[in-house]
């Protein structure tokens, strides 16, 4: 109970950062597991989920064949990039998209590594929990693959490195046990959630809103931030804080994530 209240408090604190009006609704996609399109794959070699109604990210995902037609956005919002940005705004936009794609790649590989270990164990429920969180990350990377092409952003040159590092971190912490794996999730999702938050703030502060792709990007970042915070809650609910040396492990993983963010923004 104490742990749950800590998670809720930390989550609320994190959410309280951006600006008051973004607190009014959650944008995440909790609910049934996503349904995946029969073809196509992301840059993390994962499936591409179908669009879910009423979520900003759906603008970049294939619609379900049986679903009602989605709300139409202007093609400008999903197919073009603003051309009137200052060099500083352009740099910021590129950094945001490059580092977020790299982060989502890392998250996918972490969950893949954890799932590879837990799927071979006896605790199938645990494997399902990790699978559920991984499925959420598949949507994120699918959307950033589209955004990076739309805004003509160079992906990080360290793509192969993050793949190996992500898988190794996920599998390594899973081998240490359920609690260590959840502590890893908690630390990673905390850093990613904070990072999305600061990006939403930066977009609000720095960018004009006359190009429809920018408000859409901001909504997507808010949606993904809330998804990540839901994963954080899941990790805490699954005893992440009962792992031995929790504070040290969390601090190490969080420092590694922050380092990777700093490098991926530039390289």
């Amino acid at each position: 109970m104490a742990m749950r209240s800590f998670a809720s408090t930390s989550t609320l604190l994190l959410r309280a950062r951006p600006c008051t009006f973004t607190l009014l609704c959650r944008h995440h996609s909790s609910g049934p597991p996503p349904i995946f399109a029969p073809s196509g794959s992301t840059s993390a070699h994962t499936e591409i989920p179908y669009a879910e109604p009423n979520l900003a990210s759906s603008a970049y995902l294939p619609p379900q064949p049986s679903a009602p037609p989605p709300e139409q956005l202007s093609p400008e919002a999903t197919q073009s990039t603003p051309l009137d940005l200052t060099p500083e705004q352009r740099r910021l936009l590129e950094e945001i998209i490059r580092v977020d794609q790299a982060g989502e790649l890392g998250a996918n590989l972490i969950y893949q590594g954890q799932h590879a270990v837990f799927a071979r164990g006896k605790d199938k429920k645990l494997a399902d929990i990790v699978q559920h969180m991984w499925d959420g990350e598949k949507k994120h990377i699918a959307v950033f693959d589209k955004l990076i092409t739309q805004h003509d952003v160079r992906p990080t040159a360290l793509y192969p490195l993050w793949k190996v590092a992500g898988f190794a971190l996920g599998a390594g912490t899973a081998l240490l046990g359920k609690r260590a794996a959840m502590a890893c999730t908690e630390a990673v999702e905390t850093v990613i959630g904070e990072h999305y938050n600061s990006q939403v703030e930066a977009l609000l502060r720095t960018f004009p809103t006359n190009h429809p792709s920018i408000p859409l990007l901001r909504q997507i970042l808010q949606e993904f931030r809330d998804d990540e915070l839901e994963h954080l809650d899941t990790a805490v609910e699954n005893e992440s804080q009962m792992t031995p040396h929790h504070a040290l492990l969390s601090a190490l993983i969080a420092a590694g994530c922050r380092g990777a963010i700093g490098v991926s923004e530039r390289v």
Binding site: S43, Q101, D145, I148, P155, Y159, P160
Partner: peptide, 9 residues
Amino acid sequence: DESQGADWY
């Protein structure tokens, strides 16, 4: 071309 990651390079 919509290559991603290392394929982009």
